[in-house]
Amino acid sequence: MQPTLLQKPEILLVGLSFYGDPFDSSDAWTEENHIGRTWQRLTSYLGQHGGAIRHRTASDVFYEVHIYGEETSTRGLFEVFVGVEVERLEAVPVDLLVKVLPAADYAVFTLAGEAIFSDWVMHIDRWLAEAGFERSQPYSVQYYDPRFKGLDRIAESTLDIYMPVRKAAA
């Protein structure tokens, strides 16, 4: 698992979010969870009102951001934000939310096929520790572009993970 290191300026995202334990479903008998439902809400919105999002950078790129807070460690609760990137914020529809990711150095890990379902967070944290890095921000980014073919075609799919990093203090 060898990442690419790169710098990214501020990233402006417009989308929807969920806060809680995304797998805490009252209907645990389906594979559906709150992350899937948030995606469904977004794609449904884009299908009906996609034109309302102005200055979108790419029509076939999507972001899923996991943002960790105080309750993440104690209770397993965190925010899942799914959205699209825009060049600038202007007349954002009232039913969408804005997330601004700060300019940061990222280690970008590319996952292919079944590795997408693996415990890649653990693998990434292990790599960071061994390479003398640490996370610099309390979030991680999943970057979906046309290389990702869908959960039903995972063997053919590729997903990039952007992990904000900095050199670990000596």
Binding site: D21, F23, D24, A28, N33, T72, S73, G76, D119, V121
Partner: peptide
């Protein structure tokens, strides 16, 4: 032996309750 994200997903799939619940 899991990351937190992988754990809460795997726990719910196995136990049908979240770890905290």
């Amino acid at each position: 032996g899991y990351s937190l994200f992988h754990f809460i997903r795997a726990f719910d799939q196995a136990v049908y309750h979240t770890p905290y619940d």
